[in-house]
């Protein structure tokens, strides 16, 4: 019985330990580079409105402003992007900014912790540019994205 108790304790400890939670898994995933704050908070509208061409300018602002970028996969899973190839500048980095709203095919390592998926992109296999063309449906999100003088 002591050995059963000990092994149960060890198993529970392993489940709770950060080292277990942070064990990586190699994956390939395709999806759009999104602004996670607008997506998760709903501050600008529903999930369909805060992706693609309608939300592109806002995605640039948020990426430049250091809001974390994510990869929204085709099945709806969001991966928090912590590194893209050689760039670990996940707060306002040039690579993250350049890829705003683009759909990419990526190979990398997935780390799961406390309900979030974290992605370290080792290679952007394909950059498919902006694929979601939703500006005709939603206009600009937010509405003030384009200054009146530029409309």
């Amino acid at each position: 019985m002591k050995s059963l108790l000990l092994s149960t304790f060890v198993a529970c400890g392993a489940l709770m330990s950060p080292a277990f939670a942070a064990e990586g898994e190699r994956i390939s995933v395709k999806g759009e580079i999104i602004d996670t704050w607008c997506y998760f908070s709903g501050v600008m509208g529903g999930p369909d409105a805060v992706i693609g061409s309608a939300h592109h300018t806002c995605a640039l602002w948020c990426s430049a402003g250091g809001i974390p970028v994510g990869l929204l996969a085709e099945d709806g899973t969001v991966y928090m992007v912590m590194k893209i190839e050689d760039s670990s500048d996940s707060a306002s980095g040039d690579t993250q900014l350049r890829l705003a709203s683009h759909v990419i095919e990526a190979d990398g390592m997935l780390y799961k912790r406390d309900g979030l998926n974290y992605l370290v992109v080792e290679e952007v296999v394909t950059d498919l540019d902006i694929q979601v063309r939703n500006a005709e449906d939603f206009g600009t999100v937010p509405p003030f994205a384009i200054p009146k003088a530029d409309r």
């Binding site: 950060p18 704050w37 948020c62 402003g65 974390p68």
Partner: peptide, 14 residues
């Protein structure tokens, strides 16, 4: 592990 996405300023800042 909590992920702070946003600071307290209105606008677009992490």
């Amino acid at each position: 592990l909590i992920f702070p996405n946003k600071n307290s300023q209105t606008g677009f800042q992490g």
